[in-house]
Design a protein around this nucleic acid. Structure first.
Lengths: 229, 229
DNA sequence: TGAAGACATATTGTCGACAATAAATATTCA
DNA sequence: TGAATATTTATTGTCGACAATATGTCTTCA
């Protein structure tokens, strides 16, 4: 793996996990020192993250992690629903039994073990399958950007709501069952309502994070670093 | 304008206009020599174009203009329709009379003068308004990428079909009229069928360009430069 | 005092040189 | 010969130094 990629992985992970919080500056020199490489690969990694909408750079002033306010979260989840519902029409007849039962087993496992990590894997797998099998590489690229932002939201909100665990399990199982039955209209309904409930829970938790943030630091501190444009 | 931006504009224009054809290599040193700057800003511009899906880079081998075959063109126009139809629902009640009549006048002018340049302006304006007024910056960014690719298709096909000129004028006028009447369902129908006819004409001409390309150089020449991955 | 301008500082922007790598070509040896 | 291996070449990858720029801080002077 070349250095630019190392820098990219490191920085993305730091942002998605919330280690570098929304609004915080990301300085080329600091990262270069930390990763023991020159600024060049750091810069390239940062430009890539900027193209993905995770960073925003201002000439001779700095580069900052873009904040996600509740209306951003809403936008992101709306676009996700738009794309996933479109994609499932294309991919509907292309799921194999192997794929379906593998996803199902993974969900089962996560449910038995009540393991969030496995659950996340299964969730990603199913939704990724829906997009990938639509056959549009451009759509996939765009949805991946949205996914990065959704991971950021998850990263800070840590919305590990136990009641959602059970609900989510049932919703996913229903979707898989309806794919098996080849009932597209019902499947789209199920997917739509699943996406809506996921979105609502994400928006809700992002709202909490947002007010916490504001309260915690009175007149905003990390956000103040961001230059008014 | 800093040098990276100069390089970006120059290169993008060269690719969109077809001066650097699909499949052709883009060498950092060549461009640096031509624009009289170091490779650094050239590289950054190239990475940006890569993020937009216009270039594809292979380590230590080269960077190439990504080819657009007819099925790519189809994909691009399908995604365009998906987004524009979604966007118009959001933006529908936000058009002002000033905006509508300005677009209308521009179309009228292009029609009277039979001027393709003015027509292109008017077309861009209307479709851009639909997207922008939806209020989703992320959608706008994605659609801009699609627009770049559509410009490339226009750039080579030069589909200046006179019969489409008349049809296109009527289709646009109808859409504008239906926005004025606040008739969303009919407007969506009109937009949908307009987009379909534009797409068909683009796919058709891209098919011609593609076979011409293949015939002209027997076993492909520009395309051969592209490394098999 | 306080506004205008000079200066300092922090940060990104650009440069030219050298390193690393993948592919093409030449060489070796059974 | 021809397959394995070394060499050369073309290209991108990375480096450290310096330039440009936006902002913050001092200094001057009415």
């Amino acid at each position: 793996m070349n250095r630019k990629q190392q820098a990219y992985e490191f920085l993305k992970k730091a942002i998605v996990s919330g280690a570098i919080p929304a609004g915080a500056p990301v300085r080329e020199m600091d990262l270069a020192a930390e990763l023991k490489m020159s600024r060049t690969p750091i810069r390239e990694a940062m430009r890539e993250l900027e193209a993905e909408g995770v960073l925003k750079s201002y000439p001779a002033r700095g580069t900052f992690v873009v904040p996600l306010n509740p209306s951003d979260v809403e936008e992101i989840y709306e676009l996700r629903a738009l794309h996933e519902l479109w994609a499932i029409e294309r991919s509907f007849d292309r799921f194999t039994e192997e794929e379906l039962s593998f996803v199902e087993r993974t969900f089962d496992e996560s449910y038995r073990k009540s393991d969030w990590e496995t659950w996340h894997q299964a969730d990603r797998l199913l939704h990724r399958l829906i997009i990938e099998k639509s056959g549009s590489g451009r759509l996939l690229a765009f949805v991946n950007m949205l996914n990065t932002q959704m991971d950021r939201i998850r990263g800070v909100s840590a919305a590990k709501d136990v009641s959602r665990f059970e609900t989510s399990y049932r919703e996913h199982m229903e979707i898989i069952a309806l794919i098996r039955k080849r009932d597209l209209p019902k499947c789209k309904d199920a997917l739509r309502s699943h996406l809506r409930s996921v979105a609502n829970s994400a928006i809700e938790s992002s709202r909490n994070v947002y007010v916490d943030l504001e309260r915690a630091m009175g007149g905003l501190s990390t956000l103040e670093d961001i230059p008014r444009v």
